[in-house]
Amino acid sequence: MAKIIVDENVCKGCALCVNTCPKKIIALSKSKINAKGYHPAELTDENACIGCAFCATMCPDTAITVYK
């Protein structure tokens, strides 16, 4: 059981995490817009997350905290 928490107000929606996730379970939110006007990344399937931290490694804004 692992999960990521994205700091929505820090995320700039660059999608580098979406591109690097080996499980393809991160997507840019279609419903939310943050204070900067970007669509933040969000975890789409919490059960599939393996806690590899690839997303956090590629995140330029250190918006992702990984729990495992």
């Binding site: 999608a15 330029p60 804004d61 250190t62 990984v66 495992k68």
Partner: peptide
């Protein structure tokens, strides 16, 4: 649940001004 990845201490909480996707971050 343990934290396996978090912001390093030597990086402040100030949000980076860089453009989205800039590898400076």
């Amino acid at each position: 649940m343990d934290v396996v990845f978090k912001k390093p201490h030597a990086l402040t909480d100030a949000p980076l001004h860089y453009c989205p996707g800039c590898t400076h971050g």
